Simulated scan of single mutants.
Amino acid sequence: MRNLIIVLSVAVGLISCGKETQKETVSQEVEQQVINEISNQIELKGTDDMKFDKSEFTVKAGEEVTLKFTNAGVLPIETMGHNVVVLEKDADVKTFATASAKAKATNYISDLYITDIIAQTKLLGPGESETIKFTLKEEGEYTYICTFPGHWIAMKGVIKAVK
């Protein structure tokens, strides 16, 4: 009986070690996949159903980011224009977006919160593209939105800046 207990204890120990090794391997693979997905070259599209085709990017902090944005829709700019505005980490997104939605004369970018903007594209019509360059100096999460009235609720995402 004592030998059976010893054998079972050793078996449980080996199985546990095997699972830990397996977990470590999976964890390392996931970490490598995340590292491979870091890119400072971003392509983003906006559509007529008021969505960005991607809601998250990971970039290297302190290095220049190139973002190419395309309005992939077909509806006219007056009813379905899109832009991309990258905001500072501490920006109040709702306040910024609400104020900007009232700023038709300045393509839906409010002068009241201009210091909250890191980078922005112009308001684009169907089939138009624009490329912007900017640097996220610190690690953290930066929200990007479309400021056309009402769009920011669905058209937003996060750029994660990592070292």
Rank of each mutant, 00 (worst) to 15 (best):
N3T: 11
V7F: 02
V7S: 08
V7E: 06
L8E: 03
L8G: 03
S9H: 02
S9W: 00
V10L: 15
A11V: 15
A11K: 02
V12R: 01
V12P: 02
G13P: 11
G13N: 13
G13V: 13
G13R: 11
I15L: 15
S16G: 15
S16F: 10
K19S: 13
E20V: 15
E20C: 11
E20R: 11
T21Q: 07
T21A: 14
Q22E: 14
E24N: 05
T25I: 12
V26M: 04
V26D: 04
Q28A: 09
V30G: 00
E31Y: 07
Q32E: 12
V34Y: 06
I35P: 00
N36Q: 13
N36M: 10
E37K: 05
I38V: 15
Q41C: 03
Q41R: 04
Q41M: 09
L44D: 08
K45M: 14
T47D: 01
D49R: 07
M50P: 00
D53G: 12
D53Y: 00
D53C: 10
D53Q: 07
E56R: 10
F57Y: 07
V59W: 04
A61L: 06
A61S: 14
E63A: 10
E63L: 11
T66I: 12
T66A: 13
K68N: 14
T70Q: 05
A72C: 09
G73D: 06
V74P: 00
I77Q: 07
E78R: 03
M80D: 13
M80A: 15
G81Y: 02
H82V: 09
N83Q: 06
V86G: 07
V86K: 04
D90I: 14
A91Y: 09
A91H: 10
V93D: 02
K94V: 15
T95P: 00
T95H: 01
T98W: 00
A99D: 01
A99L: 08
S100F: 01
K104N: 03
K104L: 08
T106E: 13
N107F: 01
N107M: 08
D111K: 11
L112E: 14
I114R: 13
I117L: 06
K122L: 12
L123T: 10
G125L: 11
E128A: 15
E130C: 06
E130F: 04
T131M: 13
T131C: 12
I132H: 09
F134R: 11
F134M: 14
E138V: 08
E139P: 01
G140I: 10
T143M: 12
T143Q: 06
I145C: 02
T147K: 01
P149R: 05
G150K: 11
G150P: 11
H151L: 04
W152S: 08
W152G: 02
I153K: 13
I153V: 15
A154W: 00
K156P: 00
G157Q: 05
K160P: 00
K160Y: 09
K160M: 06
A161H: 02
V162D: 02
K163V: 08
